[in-house]
Amino acid sequence: MAVHGDFSESDVRRAAFTGKSLRKTYVTGETEVHALRGVDLEINAGEILVLLGPSGSGKSTLLNIIGGLDRPTSGELWYDGKELTALDEADLTRFRRANIGFIFQFYNLIPSLTAEENVRLVTDISDRPMNPAEALELVGLQDRRHHFPAQLSGGEQQRVAVARAIAKRPGVLLCDEPTGALDSTTGVRVLETLANANRELGTTLILITHNAGIAAMADRVFNFLDGQIASIEVNQNRVAASEMTW
């Protein structure tokens, strides 16, 4: 069976997800919620993919399953030739550690650690990470590396989160509403940083958003409805993040 050692760095750039009949059912009390109702998908290595759809349509559930935070109730998910759905908890953790960078709407920085230490949290446990200072430089925060989260603005905090996510040179960046809590100027700045990572590191970028405007920077857009991918749009004319407004 696949073990963590198989997710070596050489594999990372060819990363691609394949999902077959992914279903996720939550049981809360006496009610069942069908968050995913049989999703088939292919995600290409190095593409920018945007997941669009109303609340409860299943996009966050899919993102969590792709990131190894959650497991489907049934179905298979493959990453670069290995079946993630067959991994145990410890191996899933190793998979995340080696391949996935997460960025959340509310940053999820550790308040007791400085910007640089928040990045170090990831570089401490990665195989061939960037220097934390270098990662902060990529998001333009080299001057604020000794500040604590409470001393940073929302946009700055999110850029620290981005630096933390890219510092391990992940194969995949998963972003759940990364600009949701930011004003548009700051949001664009964060998106630019993400696009840079995609361009320069070849990282696959998967973004959840309510903001249809952001879809303009994607290679492809999955439109979610009722736990299924209702349609897939392929974007022929990608717009640079810096040119977007909303």
Binding site: A90, T93, R94, R96, R97, V122, I125
Partner: peptide
Amino acid sequence: AHELATLRVLGYQRRE
């Protein structure tokens, strides 16, 4: 709990 969950997401094992 929030911080611990964040660490798990970042790839820290349970015992870590």
